[in-house]
Computed example of a mutant assay.
Amino acid sequence: MLNSADRIPARGPRLALVLALSALGQSAVADSVPEDYLAGKRAFVAEVAERHGLDRQALAALLDQARYDPAVVAAITRPYEGQPWHRYRALFLTEERIRGGVDYWKAHAPLLARAEAVYGVPPSIIVAIIGVETRYGTFLGRYRAIDALTTLGFAYAPRADFFRRELEALLLLAREESIDASAVLGSYAGALGKPQFIPSSYRAYAVDFDGDGRRDLWGSDADVIGSVANYLARHGWRRGAPIAVPASLAEGVAVDGGLADLSIAGKVPVEPTHDLATLRAAGFLWQAPLEEAARAVPIRLEGGRGPELWLGLDNFYTITRYNRSNLYAMAVLQLGAAIESAVDGP
């Protein structure tokens, strides 16, 4: 829809000014494109066309449509996960997102039940991941995937190799699933669809859960739900096992003291390796029942009223394989619990 300003035609000097400003803007954008970006495109075309038997001219024409986007670089340097836990939590634990999760759960209850039966992942976790990623499919990203992945693959040195591989995966995915690689939108990191799978994960873990012969993470909620569950199952989800439990410290034990060389995770995930006896000896206390054979890692997050202590178990670590952040996994856990409570409530 056009607003009133859009409907006013530009005439005379005003038109000349508009055209002049437009030309200046286009020139500035062109001048700001790093040379590495342009050279990277050329090298990528030659390498990938040969490796996969792709038409070199067609691939070059496709990548000619890609545009360097400095907003992508700006976004990746300030991720949500850089915030303290209490601020990050407030982004996702909202009444609106909880209500949306309840609606999504009720609308797809049979699919969620089938996914749990097949993969062992409970509906609360599947729904919460979709809610955190794309607000249940209502916001799928604002960046063209081809722009994001070329920008990061050719002009973002810290992770260029990773994003070039994802660009290559996008091209192969487009061929396999009949996706228009020049038009599809996603996140600033090139993640796609309602569950925001990066292209390599789409190729490896997406499933055709509705049996229509293709894996559609935009239009098929069956495929979305099944794919999220399959991803977690393939990364070690344990059916019926706990995820994380709140913890505290015995009187006189200070977490800042290092706890006799016991590692304590913060935002960055650490695989659970400590047995419960070791944790008890270090002064950790918890109320939730845990099997004595369980392995856990202490996690310290920045709460609004001071540190929050948790014990993360194997399933918590599995959630961090979706997004390598303890803040992300905790948001999924707590959002899922809030949604489940609302679904089960009056």
Rank of each mutant, 00 (worst) to 15 (best):
A250F: 01
A250L: 09
G252V: 08
G252R: 14
G252D: 06
V253Q: 08
A254S: 15
D256F: 08
D256V: 04
G257Y: 06
G257D: 14
G258Y: 11
A260T: 05
A260E: 15
D261Q: 13
S263Q: 11
I264E: 03
I264P: 01
I264T: 12
A265H: 01
A265D: 05
A265R: 01
G266P: 12
K267T: 13
V268H: 09
P269K: 08
V270D: 04
E271I: 02
T273V: 13
H274L: 01
D275A: 06
D275K: 03
L276N: 06
A277S: 13
A277E: 14
T278K: 11
L279F: 06
R280F: 02
R280G: 09
R280N: 03
A282W: 10
A282G: 05
A282S: 11
G283T: 09
F284R: 04
W286F: 05
W286H: 05
A288S: 15
P289M: 03
L290T: 09
L290F: 10
E291F: 00
E292L: 00
R295A: 04
A296H: 01
P298C: 06
I299R: 09
L301S: 07
E302P: 03
E302V: 03
G303N: 03
G304T: 01
G304A: 15
G304W: 00
R305F: 14
P307G: 04
P307I: 08
P307A: 11
